[in-house]
């Protein structure tokens, strides 16, 4: 139990540290990289919960795909950070007030006395031969087939929405037409010009 606790606290600290840095650093690229750190540490905590499949998926999908895209977009866009920070000081006292109030209330309600192991039992440990992926696959396509299908429909809606909102047909844009480009003949591109050679001086 001892080492597990230590590992948990290390990674939990990294998660909280990373999350704080995400919202406090000035540079958006750095913020995105701190988010990557947060995801890595969360994946480690999931490993502690024996959810190795979810941990790997988190790293592969979020760190590998989503965050890379995110960093890419952040670098492409010229975000004016100074303008975003307008009104920050003005709303700061109110924000801090609300945050402190919320935090106090949450600590009062979800304090450790309600969440001890005696209140909610720890999940049972599985042996080394226990296959997480097989278990998930087993219920994903059987017990949870309906939510799974709905999730697929949501992705389809997301595709439709993204296309309808971004695809524009502009008649004046210059675009590549490979089928015409490969059918081009020499005569259309090269013109033979007869010139008399210049005299050497």
């Amino acid at each position: 139990m001892g080492t597990e606790k230590i590992i948990f606290y290390i990674f939990a600290f990294i998660v909280v540290f990373g999350a704080t840095m995400v919202i406090s650093v000035r540079n958006p690229v750095k913020a995105a990289l701190y988010l990557v750190l947060t995801f890595f540490a969360s994946a480690a905590i999931w490993l502690l919960l024996e959810a190795e499949f979810l941990a790997i998926v988190l790293v592969l999908v979020y760190v590998g795909a989503v965050m890379v895209l995110f960093v890419f977009v952040v670098m492409m866009l010229d975000i004016n950070v100074a303008r975003l920070k307008e009104g920050f000081i003005r709303y700061l006292p109110l924000g801090i007030g609300v945050a402190v109030l919320m935090a106090v209330m949450m600590i009062m309600v979800v304090g450790p006395e309600y969440f001890g192991l005696d209140k909610i039992a720890a999940p049972e440990r599985h042996g080394a031969d226990y296959n997480n992926i097989r278990e998930i696959g087993g219920i994903l396509y059987t017990v949870y087939v309906y939510p799974f299908e709905i999730a697929a429909v949501i992705l389809l809606v997301a595709i439709v929405a993204a296309i309808v909102l971004t695809l524009r047909r502009r008649p004046n844009t210059r675009q590549q037409r490979p089928e015409e480009q490969i059918a081009v003949k020499r005569g259309e591109r090269v013109r033979m010009v007869k010139m008399s050679a210049e005299e050497r001086k």
């Binding site: 949870y144 309906y146 939510p147 709905i150 999730a151 429909v153 949501i154 809606v157 997301a158 439709v160 929405a161 309808v164 909102l165 524009r168």
Partner: peptide, 25 residues
């Protein structure tokens, strides 16, 4: 009849509505 389906149904509905509001680009 399950939190999952409540949430997924809600997201399916909301996502469609967000896109519809933005239809007039």
């Amino acid at each position: 009849h399950n939190f999952l389906t409540v949430y997924l149904g809600l997201e399916l509905l909301s996502l469609s509505m967000y896109a519809m509001v933005a239809l007039q680009r």
